[in-house]
Computed example of a mutant assay.
Amino acid sequence: MSDICHLDSDWFVNALATFLIIALVLSYAPQHVRIIQMGSSEGFSPWFLLLGSTSSTAGMLNMITLSWPTIQCCSDVSVGRCLELTAGVIQVTLQWFLFVAILVLYMIYYPARLKYVDIDIPAHGTLPPQHVKTKLLSDDWRLSVNVSWAVAIHLVVNAFITFFLLFTRIPGPGGEVPPQISMWATVLGVSSALLAGIQYAPQLSRTYRTKLVGALSIPMMIIQSPGAAIMSISIALRPGINWTSWAMYAVSGIMQAALLAMCIAWKLRQRRLKIDDFGYPLDSSSSTPLTDDVDTVVGEVSDIQVGDVPYDSEAEDVREDVPLLPKPGRSGRNSRFFGWLRL
């Protein structure tokens, strides 16, 4: 441990780590602010948030496991030296916190009108159908609540196993890492990379289907896509780290670049059609979706998500300017912070 604790300072690695810590906060801030300002989190895929949160959790615990001898140096060195030695752990922990914050904001600002199923009851004659609100939970909201619990349980279980192994570890005669801890770190790293590899698939599918940017933040992705490569290099340069710690960030950067390209394409399409990120005309103050030319199925929870309008790319008679996402409301600002914990 003494060799690790008294390694010579590397100004390049330290400068890179400091830059990445600041860049992480600045890159996630646009997404957090966008959700809060719009009062809506519509446009996110719950599966994307589930995979991203569990992937970042596994990556954080992998980094803590492999850096544990370095973390223990903090009891023998100054605060400044401690921060220098644990900069890699601080990076991945901050990245985990900032991503999970998106999930928390997603639940808090989930549009209240989309939490329950609305049913259109046919009327007699030429009268329009009656729009009836029910107490039946929509599939998308139920899935979102289950995702939140899954993320919390995954964090608790994996953190318990990690710290149990770390606090009960018995180093080998030469100070080498015990095999069970090395194996657990590999499990965490590989699972983190695999989850990151499929993390963006649900979001790419959802964004492609709606052909709208929604609540996604393009500035965040512009910063993070190249930043993922820099973060991978920064983590790889830390002492005692192997490929399982940085693979997740390299994979995430590639997938996020694909999502960024798609969002830019839809942004240009929205500008051409003169609609906003939720599909509403920019020159109209109406809060009612334009669904005259679209057959909307309401109330069939298992077949379609409430609030989504089915889109058929092969149907030439469907207007391109029909909004596919509900216009964000401001009612989410008044949501109770822990109200989403209840089904």
Rank of each mutant, 00 (worst) to 15 (best):
V79S: 06
I254V: 14
G332D: 09
T244K: 07
Q203A: 02
G227I: 05
M183K: 13
V132P: 06
R319Y: 04
I71Y: 03
L195S: 03
E316M: 13
V13L: 15
L61M: 05
M220S: 05
S225Q: 02
V213E: 07
T210L: 13
A159Y: 00
T207Q: 03
A150M: 09
I21Y: 06
V294A: 08
S285R: 12
G307K: 09
I4W: 01
L324N: 08
G125I: 10
L7Y: 02
S252I: 12
R319W: 03
S225T: 01
M255S: 14
T126G: 10
F163K: 01
R209P: 12
I4S: 12
I108D: 07
C5G: 10
A250T: 00
V33N: 09
V13A: 13
T18H: 10
V251N: 06
S286P: 03
P30F: 01
L103I: 01
N158Y: 03
D140A: 12
V13H: 10
M63V: 14
V177L: 14
T18D: 15
D10P: 09
A250Q: 06
V147M: 09
Y200E: 11
E84N: 08
S9R: 06
S27V: 10
H6Q: 12
S302P: 05
T126Q: 15
A265M: 02
T186S: 14
L165M: 15
D8N: 12
M221I: 06
F19G: 13
P128V: 13
P239N: 06
P69N: 10
C5A: 02
F278N: 08
I36S: 06
G174P: 11
K115M: 06
T54R: 03
D292M: 03
I304Q: 07
C5Q: 09
T93F: 06
T126E: 15
A185K: 00
V89P: 12
G339W: 00
S41I: 01
A193I: 00
P129F: 05
L155E: 02
W47L: 15
A159C: 05
S41G: 04
T210I: 03
A315W: 00
V297M: 07
Y116R: 06
S40R: 05
N334H: 12
I161L: 13
S313K: 01
A250E: 01
M1S: 13
I235Q: 10
L85N: 03
T65L: 14
